[in-house]
Nucleic acid binder design. Structure first.
Lengths: 240, 240
DNA sequence: CGTTGATTTGAGTAAGATCAAGTCGGGTGG
DNA sequence: CCACCCGACTTGATCTTACTCAAATCAACG
């Protein structure tokens, strides 16, 4: 499929890219690859000669400590860029793993330079995406540092639901929700046991429905209040 | 002082910028402003028409919850960029405060666009700095999510000492260390009382000396081992 | 000197971790 | 077809880390 027909671009949360730039992106994309769930997309501490866009599926960025403790830094959804840190800083300090089967649009490393040289609008967009990703990280850090377990989980579910919807993954008032409770625990800095108990509380209070791999929000307003979660509105994002 | 004579640029951890680009930066910098300790540089949730570089002093980025809980997202040291998120995403989701008296190099918002259009190498550098800042955030998130209090404080002190040294702030084997224990607590997701107790343990074990606003590392190797902290080497950074 | 902010100390408490079983459901091989 | 296996989820009991509350000390400063 050509980039101009990319279904993601049709979504209202994504911003239109100039036709000339779009054609260039199309020309630079040298492959579209599929990987199974659980595949390692990036290894912690290694460089890469690829820049990728997540086209379909879920992934996550993570870091681990020598003794095996793992922190999920963020979940990746369709439209997210993979590996900018590795490209610019020579190595990625984090790993990236596929949570579901994924489809990636692959670009060569040299593309990044060419992009800055010849396509300033796209270069701006890349920086935009980097800033956007940092903002998501800031949100999570606030959660992990200063929210209690209930607030934390509520905030994460609200954020993921919103991001998934805006990528077009909402269906009948629910989204496919691939993370296991262990993934949520690693993202929130909690134990899986505790995530389980907190999740039951949210379910009992009718705030969320999470079963059979699908997530529905029972009462968004109440859930946001529980989380003390107030998302900053953001302008539509570009898609490289 | 002109940018070409900027003492930061002389440091080995900063990368040289092409003379033409440097002259352009110099022309764009329309002011250098001083602010006292405690000054609010950015207000949470507001936009800005300025882009700034921290030239001297310490600052920090933070977010707060409605009930007043605060999370410090990161400390800012000389050479760090302020307000990229606000510029690209229309609003900054975080506030920025001066920890000491600071000197800022001020640029107009339009500069950012012109930079992408006419100075691709500098545009690349801006993205580099954004990626670098995200990487620091990833480190902190790993700490707050998965390290215990002792490891967390040790990792933060190692990181801040390294960053301060590389900005040329080391003197006689120590650095001026302006954060209070309350700041450390807000950065680490701990209470001030607990930070105090943990700090005493690090002092007692001879790992750090922190008194009269100065920090010295007693045994860097041991401190890193305590923190399970392994910093990824990074290429020299640009300075906009 | 009184005030204010930072640090320190002690006592009691609570949120969440750890440990240990057990359940449930789907897939797999005999 | 069925036994079994494995991963995810659930539950209960106990324990620890770090929080909260409260008060004392200390230094800087007007």
């Amino acid at each position: 499929m050509i980039c101009a027909a990319c279904p993601l671009r049709a979504r209202p949360d994504f911003r239109a890219v100039a036709p000339a730039d779009l054609a260039w992106i199309e020309a630079q994309r040298h492959a579209q690859s599929q990987l199974p769930a659980g595949a390692i997309i990036r290894t912690e501490g290694e460089g890469s000669d690829q820049l990728q866009t997540l086209f379909a599926g879920w992934g996550f960025r993570f870091k681990t400590l020598p003794d095996g403790r793992r922190q999920i830094l963020n979940f990746l959804l369709p439209g997210d860029l993979i590996g900018l840190q590795a490209d610019l800083l020579a190595v990625a300090a984090h790993g990236v793993e596929a949570l579901t089967p994924v489809i990636l649009c692959e670009f060569r490393r040299e593309t990044v330079w060419a992009l800055y040289r010849d396509h300033p609008a796209l270069a701006y967009d890349v920086t935009f995406l980097a800033a956007h990703s940092e903002r998501l990280g800031d949100d999570i850090l606030l959660s992990v540092g200063r929210r209690d377990a209930v607030e934390r989980l509520a905030a994460l579910l609200v954020q993921l639901y919103r991001r998934a919807s805006s990528a077009g993954l909402e269906n009948d008032g629910s989204i496919a929700f691939p993370p296991t409770q262990a993934h949520l625990a690693d993202a929130l800095g909690l134990s899986t046991v505790h995530v389980n108990r907190v999740l039951q509380r949210l379910r009992r209070d009718g705030l969320v429905r999470l079963e059979a791999g699908r997530l529905a929000i029972g009462d968004l307003r109440a859930l946001r209040r529980v989380a003390e979660y107030w998302e900053q509105p953001a302008p539509p994002r570009p898609l490289i």
